[in-house]
Nucleic acid binder design. Structure first.
Lengths: 219, 219
DNA sequence: CTGGCAAATAATGTATACATTAAATTTCAA
DNA sequence: TTGAAATTTAATGTATACATTATTTGCCAG
Protein backbone atom coordinates (compact mmCIF):
# COMPACT_ATOMS: atom_id res chain seq x y z
CA UNK A 1 0.00 0.00 0.00
CA UNK A 2 2.05 2.88 -1.32
CA UNK A 3 1.19 5.92 0.77
CA UNK A 4 -1.19 8.48 -0.58
CA UNK A 5 -0.14 11.47 -2.61
CA UNK A 6 -1.39 13.74 0.15
CA UNK A 7 1.03 12.12 2.58
CA UNK A 8 3.81 12.40 0.03
CA UNK A 9 2.96 16.05 -0.52
CA UNK A 10 3.12 16.72 3.21
CA UNK A 11 6.53 15.16 3.69
CA UNK A 12 7.98 16.57 0.47
CA UNK A 13 6.74 20.07 1.19
CA UNK A 14 8.19 19.84 4.68
CA UNK A 15 11.45 18.72 3.16
CA UNK A 16 11.43 21.64 0.75
CA UNK A 17 10.71 24.07 3.57
CA UNK A 18 13.28 22.71 6.01
CA UNK A 19 15.97 22.55 3.33
CA UNK A 20 15.35 26.16 2.43
CA UNK A 21 14.37 25.43 -1.16
CA UNK A 22 11.13 27.18 -0.30
CA UNK A 23 12.53 30.05 1.78
CA UNK A 24 10.69 31.68 4.64
CA UNK A 25 8.53 34.50 3.37
CA UNK A 26 8.27 33.19 -0.18
CA UNK A 27 4.94 32.74 -1.98
CA UNK A 28 3.96 29.84 -4.18
CA UNK A 29 0.89 29.05 -6.23
CA UNK A 30 -0.91 25.80 -5.58
CA UNK A 31 -0.56 24.91 -9.25
CA UNK A 32 3.16 25.61 -9.17
CA UNK A 33 3.68 23.31 -6.19
CA UNK A 34 1.46 20.68 -7.79
CA UNK A 35 3.58 20.67 -10.91
CA UNK A 36 6.77 20.51 -8.88
CA UNK A 37 5.50 17.48 -6.96
CA UNK A 38 4.06 15.95 -10.12
CA UNK A 39 0.52 15.61 -8.87
CA UNK A 40 -2.74 17.53 -9.13
CA UNK A 41 -3.76 20.46 -6.97
CA UNK A 42 -6.08 18.37 -4.83
CA UNK A 43 -3.52 16.51 -2.71
CA UNK A 44 -1.30 19.60 -2.63
CA UNK A 45 -4.16 21.62 -1.23
CA UNK A 46 -4.90 19.00 1.39
CA UNK A 47 -1.25 18.90 2.36
CA UNK A 48 -1.07 22.68 2.52
CA UNK A 49 -4.09 22.74 4.82
CA UNK A 50 -2.37 20.35 7.18
CA UNK A 51 0.86 22.30 7.14
CA UNK A 52 -1.10 25.48 7.69
CA UNK A 53 -2.70 24.02 10.81
CA UNK A 54 0.80 23.17 11.95
CA UNK A 55 1.95 26.72 11.49
CA UNK A 56 4.47 26.14 8.71
CA UNK A 57 2.66 28.12 6.05
CA UNK A 58 -0.39 30.25 5.44
CA UNK A 59 -2.85 29.97 2.59
CA UNK A 60 -3.83 33.39 1.41
CA UNK A 61 -6.63 33.68 -1.13
CA UNK A 62 -5.21 34.62 -4.55
CA UNK A 63 -1.72 35.20 -3.17
CA UNK A 64 -0.58 31.62 -2.99
CA UNK A 65 0.73 29.80 0.03
CA UNK A 66 3.29 31.75 2.01
CA UNK A 67 6.06 29.95 3.80
CA UNK A 68 5.86 31.49 7.24
CA UNK A 69 9.00 32.97 8.72
CA UNK A 70 9.75 32.20 12.36
CA UNK A 71 10.22 35.37 14.33
CA UNK A 72 12.08 35.79 17.59
CA UNK A 73 8.72 36.20 19.24
CA UNK A 74 7.57 32.94 17.71
CA UNK A 75 10.61 31.27 19.22
CA UNK A 76 9.73 32.68 22.62
CA UNK A 77 6.22 31.30 22.34
CA UNK A 78 7.41 27.92 21.14
CA UNK A 79 10.04 27.54 23.82
CA UNK A 80 7.54 28.50 26.51
CA UNK A 81 5.11 25.82 25.39
CA UNK A 82 7.86 23.24 24.98
CA UNK A 83 9.18 23.99 28.43
CA UNK A 84 5.80 23.38 30.00
CA UNK A 85 4.90 20.22 28.16
CA UNK A 86 8.33 18.64 28.45
CA UNK A 87 8.43 19.59 32.10
CA UNK A 88 5.10 17.85 32.59
CA UNK A 89 6.40 14.83 30.71
CA UNK A 90 9.55 14.63 32.83
CA UNK A 91 7.52 14.75 36.02
CA UNK A 92 5.04 12.15 34.85
CA UNK A 93 7.79 9.90 33.48
CA UNK A 94 9.38 9.81 36.91
CA UNK A 95 6.10 8.56 38.30
CA UNK A 96 5.91 5.47 36.12
CA UNK A 97 8.77 3.65 37.82
CA UNK A 98 10.73 3.07 34.63
CA UNK A 99 13.70 0.73 34.90
CA UNK A 100 17.05 1.07 33.17
CA UNK A 101 15.85 -0.87 30.15
CA UNK A 102 12.93 1.49 29.67
CA UNK A 103 15.36 4.38 29.70
CA UNK A 104 17.94 3.03 27.28
CA UNK A 105 16.78 5.22 24.40
CA UNK A 106 16.97 8.32 26.55
CA UNK A 107 20.39 7.34 27.89
CA UNK A 108 21.61 6.55 24.38
CA UNK A 109 20.63 10.00 23.12
CA UNK A 110 22.63 11.56 25.94
CA UNK A 111 25.65 9.40 25.19
CA UNK A 112 25.39 10.35 21.53
CA UNK A 113 25.31 14.02 22.44
CA UNK A 114 28.46 13.55 24.49
CA UNK A 115 30.21 11.91 21.59
CA UNK A 116 29.01 14.58 19.17
CA UNK A 117 30.19 17.42 21.39
CA UNK A 118 33.60 15.82 21.71
CA UNK A 119 33.84 15.33 17.95
CA UNK A 120 32.50 18.85 17.33
CA UNK A 121 29.85 17.22 15.15
CA UNK A 122 27.11 19.76 15.51
CA UNK A 123 24.65 18.13 13.14
CA UNK A 124 24.93 14.87 15.03
CA UNK A 125 24.47 16.72 18.29
CA UNK A 126 21.31 18.36 17.00
CA UNK A 127 19.93 15.02 15.85
CA UNK A 128 20.61 13.39 19.22
CA UNK A 129 19.16 16.38 21.06
CA UNK A 130 15.98 16.00 19.04
CA UNK A 131 15.87 12.36 19.98
CA UNK A 132 16.27 13.21 23.67
CA UNK A 133 13.34 15.57 23.71
CA UNK A 134 11.13 13.28 21.62
CA UNK A 135 11.90 10.31 23.83
CA UNK A 136 11.37 12.32 27.01
CA UNK A 137 7.88 13.30 25.95
CA UNK A 138 7.11 9.76 24.84
CA UNK A 139 7.97 8.54 28.33
CA UNK A 140 5.46 11.01 29.72
CA UNK A 141 2.63 9.02 28.08
CA UNK A 142 0.48 11.88 26.93
CA UNK A 143 -0.27 11.50 23.24
CA UNK A 144 -1.44 15.09 22.94
CA UNK A 145 1.77 16.40 24.43
CA UNK A 146 3.70 14.15 22.05
CA UNK A 147 1.85 15.55 19.06
CA UNK A 148 2.23 19.17 20.10
CA UNK A 149 5.90 18.87 20.95
CA UNK A 150 6.52 17.08 17.66
CA UNK A 151 4.95 19.92 15.72
CA UNK A 152 6.90 22.55 17.53
CA UNK A 153 10.17 20.71 17.25
CA UNK A 154 9.77 21.15 13.52
CA UNK A 155 9.90 24.88 13.98
CA UNK A 156 12.78 24.70 16.40
CA UNK A 157 14.65 22.59 13.87
CA UNK A 158 14.14 25.31 11.31
CA UNK A 159 15.53 27.97 13.60
CA UNK A 160 18.40 25.75 14.62
CA UNK A 161 19.48 25.25 11.02
CA UNK A 162 20.40 28.93 11.05
CA UNK A 163 21.77 29.24 14.55
CA UNK A 164 23.58 25.94 14.92
CA UNK A 165 26.94 27.24 13.77
CA UNK A 166 26.89 30.53 15.59
CA UNK A 167 25.98 29.20 19.01
CA UNK A 168 28.36 28.07 21.71
CA UNK A 169 29.18 24.38 21.92
CA UNK A 170 26.53 22.90 24.17
CA UNK A 171 28.45 21.38 27.06
CA UNK A 172 26.36 22.42 30.07
CA UNK A 173 23.39 21.04 28.23
CA UNK A 174 24.36 17.45 28.79
CA UNK A 175 24.77 17.77 32.52
CA UNK A 176 21.14 18.85 32.61
CA UNK A 177 20.04 15.99 30.41
CA UNK A 178 21.76 13.52 32.65
CA UNK A 179 20.18 15.14 35.67
CA UNK A 180 16.73 14.68 34.17
CA UNK A 181 17.47 11.06 33.31
CA UNK A 182 18.69 10.33 36.83
CA UNK A 183 15.72 12.04 38.45
CA UNK A 184 13.34 10.00 36.31
CA UNK A 185 15.19 6.82 37.17
CA UNK A 186 15.04 7.76 40.86
CA UNK A 187 11.32 8.48 40.61
CA UNK A 188 11.74 12.09 41.69
CA UNK A 189 9.22 13.87 39.51
CA UNK A 190 9.55 17.29 41.06
CA UNK A 191 13.31 17.26 40.55
CA UNK A 192 13.05 16.01 36.98
CA UNK A 193 10.67 18.80 36.18
CA UNK A 194 12.75 21.44 37.94
CA UNK A 195 15.96 20.51 36.13
CA UNK A 196 14.30 20.26 32.76
CA UNK A 197 12.43 23.53 33.13
CA UNK A 198 15.60 25.36 34.07
CA UNK A 199 17.38 23.72 31.14
CA UNK A 200 14.78 24.83 28.64
CA UNK A 201 14.59 28.33 30.05
CA UNK A 202 18.31 28.73 29.67
CA UNK A 203 18.17 27.41 26.12
CA UNK A 204 15.43 29.92 25.36
CA UNK A 205 17.42 32.83 26.77
CA UNK A 206 20.49 31.77 24.85
CA UNK A 207 18.66 31.47 21.55
CA UNK A 208 16.83 34.76 21.97
CA UNK A 209 20.06 36.58 22.81
CA UNK A 210 21.70 35.03 19.79
CA UNK A 211 18.90 36.13 17.51
CA UNK A 212 19.01 39.61 19.03
CA UNK A 213 22.77 39.89 18.68
CA UNK A 214 22.83 38.77 15.08
CA UNK A 215 19.78 40.82 14.19
CA UNK A 216 17.98 37.64 13.13
CA UNK A 217 14.46 38.84 13.64
CA UNK A 218 13.03 36.26 11.28
CA UNK A 219 14.30 32.87 10.17
CA UNK B 1 -17.70 37.91 1.10
CA UNK B 2 -19.77 35.06 2.47
CA UNK B 3 -17.40 32.65 4.13
CA UNK B 4 -16.25 29.63 2.23
CA UNK B 5 -18.09 26.34 2.24
CA UNK B 6 -15.11 24.71 3.92
CA UNK B 7 -15.44 27.08 6.85
CA UNK B 8 -19.15 26.46 6.97
CA UNK B 9 -18.55 22.72 6.89
CA UNK B 10 -16.13 22.98 9.80
CA UNK B 11 -18.49 24.93 12.02
CA UNK B 12 -21.57 22.92 11.06
CA UNK B 13 -19.83 19.60 11.59
CA UNK B 14 -18.62 20.81 14.97
CA UNK B 15 -22.15 21.82 15.79
CA UNK B 16 -23.47 18.41 14.78
CA UNK B 17 -20.83 16.68 16.88
CA UNK B 18 -21.25 18.83 19.99
CA UNK B 19 -25.03 18.61 19.84
CA UNK B 20 -24.83 14.84 19.67
CA UNK B 21 -26.55 14.57 16.29
CA UNK B 22 -23.41 12.78 15.17
CA UNK B 23 -22.80 10.65 18.25
CA UNK B 24 -19.38 9.60 19.44
CA UNK B 25 -18.35 6.37 17.80
CA UNK B 26 -20.64 6.72 14.80
CA UNK B 27 -19.40 6.43 11.21
CA UNK B 28 -20.43 8.60 8.30
CA UNK B 29 -19.59 8.59 4.62
CA UNK B 30 -18.15 11.71 3.10
CA UNK B 31 -20.91 11.72 0.52
CA UNK B 32 -23.56 11.42 3.21
CA UNK B 33 -22.19 14.40 5.12
CA UNK B 34 -21.85 16.34 1.87
CA UNK B 35 -25.50 15.79 1.08
CA UNK B 36 -26.53 16.74 4.59
CA UNK B 37 -24.59 20.00 4.38
CA UNK B 38 -25.76 20.59 0.83
CA UNK B 39 -22.35 20.89 -0.74
CA UNK B 40 -19.92 18.66 -2.62
CA UNK B 41 -17.46 16.26 -1.06
CA UNK B 42 -14.50 18.58 -1.59
CA UNK B 43 -15.17 21.14 1.17
CA UNK B 44 -16.48 18.38 3.44
CA UNK B 45 -13.23 16.50 3.03
CA UNK B 46 -11.18 19.59 3.75
CA UNK B 47 -13.26 20.26 6.84
CA UNK B 48 -12.92 16.67 7.98
CA UNK B 49 -9.16 16.88 7.61
CA UNK B 50 -9.09 19.93 9.84
CA UNK B 51 -11.32 18.34 12.44
CA UNK B 52 -9.20 15.21 12.29
CA UNK B 53 -6.08 17.21 13.08
CA UNK B 54 -7.99 18.66 16.01
CA UNK B 55 -8.82 15.23 17.31
CA UNK B 56 -12.58 15.35 16.88
CA UNK B 57 -12.82 12.62 14.27
CA UNK B 58 -10.77 10.12 12.32
CA UNK B 59 -10.88 9.47 8.59
CA UNK B 60 -10.61 5.80 7.93
CA UNK B 61 -10.23 4.63 4.34
CA UNK B 62 -13.46 3.07 3.07
CA UNK B 63 -15.07 3.15 6.49
CA UNK B 64 -16.10 6.75 6.55
CA UNK B 65 -15.24 9.35 9.12
CA UNK B 66 -15.65 8.19 12.69
CA UNK B 67 -16.67 10.63 15.37
CA UNK B 68 -14.11 9.96 18.05
CA UNK B 69 -15.30 9.18 21.53
CA UNK B 70 -13.51 10.90 24.39
CA UNK B 71 -12.26 8.36 26.88
CA UNK B 72 -11.44 8.92 30.53
CA UNK B 73 -7.81 8.62 29.55
CA UNK B 74 -8.28 11.30 26.92
CA UNK B 75 -9.71 13.55 29.60
CA UNK B 76 -6.67 12.93 31.76
CA UNK B 77 -4.38 13.87 28.90
CA UNK B 78 -6.38 16.94 28.04
CA UNK B 79 -6.58 18.20 31.59
CA UNK B 80 -2.86 17.69 32.06
CA UNK B 81 -2.05 19.78 29.02
CA UNK B 82 -4.60 22.43 29.92
CA UNK B 83 -3.23 22.66 33.44
CA UNK B 84 0.27 23.30 32.15
CA UNK B 85 -0.59 25.84 29.49
CA UNK B 86 -3.08 27.74 31.60
CA UNK B 87 -0.64 27.72 34.49
CA UNK B 88 1.98 29.21 32.21
CA UNK B 89 -0.50 31.80 31.01
CA UNK B 90 -1.45 32.80 34.55
CA UNK B 91 2.18 33.26 35.50
CA UNK B 92 3.00 35.26 32.39
CA UNK B 93 -0.15 37.36 32.71
CA UNK B 94 0.95 38.41 36.17
CA UNK B 95 4.19 39.67 34.68
CA UNK B 96 2.58 42.10 32.27
CA UNK B 97 1.42 44.55 34.91
CA UNK B 98 -2.20 44.51 33.84
CA UNK B 99 -4.45 47.09 35.44
CA UNK B 100 -8.05 46.68 36.50
CA UNK B 101 -9.36 47.71 33.11
CA UNK B 102 -7.27 45.04 31.40
CA UNK B 103 -8.79 42.48 33.73
CA UNK B 104 -12.44 43.45 33.41
CA UNK B 105 -13.28 40.54 31.11
CA UNK B 106 -11.72 38.07 33.50
CA UNK B 107 -13.45 39.67 36.50
CA UNK B 108 -16.75 39.70 34.64
CA UNK B 109 -16.56 35.98 33.92
CA UNK B 110 -16.01 35.32 37.62
CA UNK B 111 -18.95 37.51 38.58
CA UNK B 112 -21.09 35.69 36.03
CA UNK B 113 -20.09 32.35 37.49
CA UNK B 114 -21.12 33.58 40.94
CA UNK B 115 -24.49 34.65 39.64
CA UNK B 116 -24.94 31.37 37.77
CA UNK B 117 -24.09 29.27 40.82
CA UNK B 118 -26.57 31.22 42.91
CA UNK B 119 -29.26 30.81 40.29
CA UNK B 120 -28.35 27.15 39.82
CA UNK B 121 -27.99 27.93 36.12
CA UNK B 122 -25.47 25.29 35.15
CA UNK B 123 -25.38 26.08 31.46
CA UNK B 124 -24.64 29.71 32.21
CA UNK B 125 -21.96 28.67 34.66
CA UNK B 126 -20.32 26.47 32.03
CA UNK B 127 -20.38 29.30 29.51
CA UNK B 128 -18.80 31.75 31.95
CA UNK B 129 -16.23 29.17 33.01
CA UNK B 130 -15.25 28.75 29.38
CA UNK B 131 -14.87 32.49 29.11
CA UNK B 132 -12.65 32.60 32.18
CA UNK B 133 -10.23 30.05 30.81
CA UNK B 134 -10.18 31.55 27.34
CA UNK B 135 -9.56 35.02 28.70
CA UNK B 136 -6.87 33.80 31.08
CA UNK B 137 -4.89 32.27 28.25
CA UNK B 138 -5.38 35.35 26.11
CA UNK B 139 -3.83 37.46 28.85
CA UNK B 140 -0.79 35.17 28.76
CA UNK B 141 0.02 36.44 25.25
CA UNK B 142 1.12 33.19 23.67
CA UNK B 143 -0.80 32.60 20.48
CA UNK B 144 0.19 28.96 20.36
CA UNK B 145 -1.08 28.35 23.86
CA UNK B 146 -4.29 30.13 22.93
CA UNK B 147 -4.77 27.89 19.91
CA UNK B 148 -4.05 24.66 21.75
CA UNK B 149 -6.23 25.51 24.72
CA UNK B 150 -9.03 26.51 22.39
CA UNK B 151 -8.89 23.16 20.64
CA UNK B 152 -8.88 21.22 23.85
CA UNK B 153 -11.67 23.24 25.39
CA UNK B 154 -13.81 21.87 22.58
CA UNK B 155 -13.25 18.39 23.88
CA UNK B 156 -13.80 19.41 27.48
CA UNK B 157 -17.06 21.00 26.42
CA UNK B 158 -18.12 17.71 24.92
CA UNK B 159 -17.38 15.83 28.12
CA UNK B 160 -19.04 18.48 30.21
CA UNK B 161 -22.27 18.20 28.25
CA UNK B 162 -22.61 14.74 29.76
CA UNK B 163 -21.28 15.41 33.23
CA UNK B 164 -22.68 18.86 33.88
CA UNK B 165 -25.80 17.64 35.62
CA UNK B 166 -24.25 14.87 37.66
CA UNK B 167 -21.44 16.91 39.17
CA UNK B 168 -21.52 18.88 42.40
CA UNK B 169 -22.34 22.57 42.20
CA UNK B 170 -19.02 24.29 41.66
CA UNK B 171 -18.69 26.63 44.61
CA UNK B 172 -15.04 26.16 45.62
CA UNK B 173 -14.17 26.78 42.00
CA UNK B 174 -14.87 30.48 42.19
CA UNK B 175 -12.67 31.09 45.18
CA UNK B 176 -9.81 29.74 43.09
CA UNK B 177 -10.72 31.87 40.12
CA UNK B 178 -10.75 34.96 42.25
CA UNK B 179 -7.41 33.97 43.73
CA UNK B 180 -5.89 33.74 40.28
CA UNK B 181 -7.34 37.10 39.28
CA UNK B 182 -6.00 38.77 42.42
CA UNK B 183 -2.55 37.24 42.00
CA UNK B 184 -2.39 38.47 38.41
CA UNK B 185 -3.47 41.93 39.49
CA UNK B 186 -0.83 41.88 42.22
CA UNK B 187 1.84 40.77 39.77
CA UNK B 188 2.56 37.58 41.67
CA UNK B 189 3.16 35.10 38.88
CA UNK B 190 4.27 32.20 41.03
CA UNK B 191 1.14 32.47 43.16
CA UNK B 192 -1.16 32.80 40.15
CA UNK B 193 0.34 29.67 38.68
CA UNK B 194 0.20 27.75 41.94
CA UNK B 195 -3.46 28.50 42.56
CA UNK B 196 -4.49 27.78 39.02
CA UNK B 197 -2.56 24.54 38.81
CA UNK B 198 -4.11 23.31 42.02
CA UNK B 199 -7.52 24.34 40.75
CA UNK B 200 -7.15 22.42 37.52
CA UNK B 201 -5.74 19.36 39.22
CA UNK B 202 -8.72 19.23 41.54
CA UNK B 203 -11.09 19.63 38.62
CA UNK B 204 -9.34 16.78 36.84
CA UNK B 205 -9.60 14.52 39.87
CA UNK B 206 -13.25 15.35 40.29
CA UNK B 207 -14.10 14.67 36.66
CA UNK B 208 -12.17 11.41 36.54
CA UNK B 209 -13.82 10.17 39.71
CA UNK B 210 -17.19 11.10 38.29
CA UNK B 211 -16.52 9.22 35.07
CA UNK B 212 -15.29 6.23 37.06
CA UNK B 213 -18.28 6.23 39.39
CA UNK B 214 -20.81 6.47 36.60
CA UNK B 215 -18.95 3.99 34.42
CA UNK B 216 -18.61 6.62 31.72
CA UNK B 217 -15.54 5.25 30.03
CA UNK B 218 -16.29 7.04 26.79
CA UNK B 219 -18.26 10.17 26.04
C1' DC C 1 -21.75 -28.02 2.96
C1' DT C 2 -17.55 -25.43 3.12
C1' DG C 3 -13.56 -22.92 1.70
C1' DG C 4 -11.22 -20.22 -1.41
C1' DC C 5 -10.99 -17.57 -5.55
C1' DA C 6 -12.95 -14.31 -8.66
C1' DA C 7 -15.94 -10.76 -9.86
C1' DA C 8 -18.63 -6.98 -8.46
C1' DT C 9 -19.30 -3.27 -5.43
C1' DA C 10 -18.68 0.76 -2.99
C1' DA C 11 -15.99 3.91 -0.90
C1' DT C 12 -12.00 6.93 -0.88
C1' DG C 13 -8.16 9.26 -3.42
C1' DT C 14 -7.12 12.06 -7.34
C1' DA C 15 -7.59 14.69 -11.53
C1' DT C 16 -9.86 17.98 -14.02
C1' DA C 17 -13.27 21.15 -15.37
C1' DC C 18 -15.82 25.01 -13.91
C1' DA C 19 -17.45 29.04 -10.91
C1' DT C 20 -16.23 32.76 -8.28
C1' DT C 21 -13.88 36.66 -7.17
C1' DA C 22 -9.99 39.75 -5.96
C1' DA C 23 -6.67 42.18 -8.41
C1' DA C 24 -4.73 44.26 -12.29
C1' DT C 25 -5.17 46.60 -16.50
C1' DT C 26 -7.16 49.35 -19.78
C1' DT C 27 -10.17 52.74 -21.40
C1' DC C 28 -12.61 56.93 -21.36
C1' DA C 29 -14.02 61.30 -19.60
C1' DA C 30 -13.01 65.41 -17.09
C1' DT D 1 -2.74 63.78 -17.34
C1' DT D 2 -5.34 61.67 -13.87
C1' DG D 3 -8.83 59.11 -11.77
C1' DA D 4 -12.55 56.15 -11.74
C1' DA D 5 -15.22 52.63 -13.90
C1' DA D 6 -15.36 48.65 -16.60
C1' DT D 7 -13.13 44.79 -18.47
C1' DT D 8 -9.89 41.28 -18.36
C1' DT D 9 -7.08 38.20 -16.01
C1' DA D 10 -5.54 34.86 -12.90
C1' DA D 11 -5.86 32.49 -8.89
C1' DT D 12 -8.53 30.01 -5.52
C1' DG D 13 -12.90 27.50 -4.18
C1' DT D 14 -15.98 23.96 -5.58
C1' DA D 15 -18.16 20.39 -8.24
C1' DT D 16 -17.80 16.40 -10.72
C1' DA D 17 -15.84 12.72 -13.19
C1' DC D 18 -12.64 9.13 -12.90
C1' DA D 19 -9.04 5.76 -10.88
C1' DT D 20 -7.87 2.88 -7.31
C1' DT D 21 -8.60 -0.45 -4.07
C1' DA D 22 -10.48 -2.87 0.15
C1' DT D 23 -14.44 -5.35 1.05
C1' DT D 24 -18.07 -8.17 0.07
C1' DT D 25 -20.66 -11.26 -2.42
C1' DG D 26 -21.37 -15.18 -5.07
C1' DC D 27 -19.82 -19.04 -7.58
C1' DC D 28 -17.54 -23.23 -8.12
C1' DA D 29 -14.71 -27.06 -6.74
C1' DG D 30 -13.71 -30.34 -3.42
Amino acid sequence: MSQSNTQRAISELRQLIFSGVLPAGSDHLESELAERLDMSRTPVREAALMLESQGLLAMRPRKGVRILPVSADDMREIYDVLTELEGLSAERAAGYGYGDDDLTALAASIADMDKAVEARALEDWAEADDRFHTELVRLGRNSRAVAIVGMMQDQVRRARATTLYIRPIPTQSNADHRGVLDAIGAGDGALARRIHTRHRDQAKRMILELLEKHRLHTL
